[in-house]
């Protein structure tokens, strides 16, 4: 069982995005294979007009997994807030994954706009999941703005580079021991996801790594297992690293030959 997000426990620590799959049917099979706790849905592009994306949204909603709409591709506070309003109406949820993109090459968050949009939305009653960096000061500001979850990046969106700044992510976990933390963006393979969970992160959010795999369904299953493995390992209290060998079979008392 994953951590509680705004009072709701999720059935899995895997959050799965729904964009870029070869077909909605493959998306469905991937969801059945991975059994994620949450599905994220981008509202921005799909809804170019009045409920024009309804056919696809219905397919996602029929999967029976809680939906976390996101403001993917928004570059300004106003766009993000408007998209959040649309999302609440379409999906009937006050959960919103908040993205305010600041830079086109790295798609890194505009943390100033992010804090502002988070304040506006929490005041309106939204439960905000902010896509942020591992910067602790920004994180403090987001919490002060009313966020009860933080989603730092592992690496730029879609890059598949894994956890780029292990030190920063560890510091964030240590600094906010009781805030649910989710690594969002940059995860490329299941071992990256397991690593985040082993470090004590509460969940990971993955989209491209599954959707763009040669076999998205097989990769979805692998991520589902990796997240379980990482969480079990964290709960089992991993051993400490050390610089010198420690033999697992004690030699004391044995006869040495030669």
């Amino acid at each position: 069982m994953a951590a509680s997000f705004y009072g709701q426990e999720l059935s899995s620590a895997l959050m799965l995005g729904t964009a870029q799959y070869p077909s909605p049917e493959i998306l469905r099979d991937a969801v059945l294979a991975a059994r994620p706790g949450v599905l994220t849905v981008s509202l921005r592009r799909e809804s170019a007009g009045e409920r024009a994306g309804q056919a696809f949204w219905s397919l996602v909603q029929e999967l029976g997994v809680p939906v976390l709409p996101n403001t993917a591709g928004c570059h300004t506070v106003k766009e993000a807030v408007t998209t959040a309003h649309m999302a609440r109406e379409v999906f009937g949820t006050d959960w919103i994954k908040l993205e305010v993109i600041g830079e086109l090459d790295t798609l890194q968050p505009d943390v100033f706009g992010l804090v502002e949009a988070a304040r506006i939305l929490t005041e309106e009653g939204f439960k905000v999941f902010p896509y942020t960096t591992e910067d602790l000061v920004v994180a403090e500001r987001l919490l002060a703005a009313g966020c009860e979850v933080l989603m730092p990046w592992g690496a730029p969106i879609g890059s598949g580079k894994g956890l780029n700044n292990l030190f920063g992510l560890r510091a964030m976990r240590a600094h906010f021991p009781s805030v649910p933390l989710v690594v969002d963006a940059g995860i490329g393979v299941p071992s990256h996801a397991a690593q985040a969970l082993e470090m004590g992160y509460d969940a990971v959010l993955i989209n491209t790594a599954v959707a763009k795999a040669g076999d998205p369904v097989g990769m979805a299953r692998a991520f589902g297992l990796a997240v379980q493995a990482g969480m079990l390992a964290h709960m089992a209290d991993p051993m400490e690293e050390r610089d010198m060998a420690v033999p697992s079979t004690p030699v004391a008392g044995k006869a040495f030959l030669g």
Binding site: R45, E46, A48, G49
Partner: peptide
């Protein structure tokens, strides 16, 4: 390729 049924003009 956009999951939308809006047939309006190009963005």
């Amino acid at each position: 390729m956009v999951e939308s049924e809006n047939a309006g003009g190009m963005t």
